[in-house]
């Protein structure tokens, strides 16, 4: 599926792969709003982050603590990936056979890097669940995890700064959708995540 992307890129100069956003688990957990960019059935779906950026894809590095196999005919795997701020719920099904095989092979616990698509689900009680459909997952080392925390903290702080100064359409939309967002919360989230890395 994603394997055809580079070829598309070469043929059609205008093709741009959606970048993988860096987001901490506790920010993704706060997401309530997703939208399609375009009318087409194949138009990409974006989850709007409370700090005002759209994400069609995210890159996370954390500790895979659990994985479970589910389903009888349609097997899929669920897993939990922990970062310094919370938990990401990841899943890979038969539509992502490679990702599913990779996930099936990994012994928990392990540091993993995950590239995937965020999705929001509304549960029967009205609350939301953000989960990540895995495109690729690999075992990495602690150095990579620490680099990710720095990277994600930097991007989170960039977004928090932009909230105060920029009036991009996505930021305006985020302020509408998440009226109670307090930028200080996300600044502290970044600080706490950084503080968990040993000097």
């Amino acid at each position: 599926m994603s394997g055809t992307a580079p070829e598309m890129g070469r043929r059609d100069g205008s093709f741009e792969r959606e970048p993988a956003r860096r987001v901490f688990a506790s920010e993704l957990r706060e997401c309530r709003y997703q939208f399609k960019d375009g009318e087409d059935e194949k138009s990409p779906t974006f989850v709007l982050l409370p700090t005002g950026e759209r994400s069609n894809r995210i890159f996370i590095v954390g500790t895979l603590t659990e994985k479970t196999r589910q389903g009888e005919q349609n097997i899929f795997y669920r897993g939990r990936v922990i970062d310094p701020t919370g938990t990401f719920f990841i899943m890979a099904g038969s539509y992502q056979p490679e990702a599913m095989q990779q996930l099936a092979k990994i012994e928990t616990p392990a540091f993993v890097a995950v590239i995937g698509k965020p999705n929001l689900y509304q549960k029967p009680d009205g609350s939301y669940l953000a989960s990540v459909r895995v495109e690729a997952i690999t075992v990495v080392d602690k150095d990579t995890r620490d680099l990710w925390v720095l990277d994600t903290a930097a991007h989170t702080l960039d977004r928090v700064d932009a909230l105060a100064t920029s009036t991009s359409p996505d930021i305006v939309k985020a302020k509408e959708q998440y009226p109670s967002v307090d930028p200080a919360v996300y600044r502290k989230m970044a600080y706490d995540a950084l503080a968990q890395i040993k000097m």
């Binding site: 890129g9 100069g13 903290a153 600044r187 600080y191 950084l194 503080a195």
Partner: peptide, 29 residues
């Protein structure tokens, strides 16, 4: 043509200087 022809590619490593800078930035305001 929208493709980076890579001459060198090196793994990045954790830098405590960068870490300290970000801690300051996050706690600074």
């Amino acid at each position: 043509e929208n493709r980076l022809l890579v001459n060198t590619c090196e793994r990045m490593h954790f830098e405590s200087g960068e870490h300290a800078k970000l801690l300051n930035r996050a706690g600074g305001a």
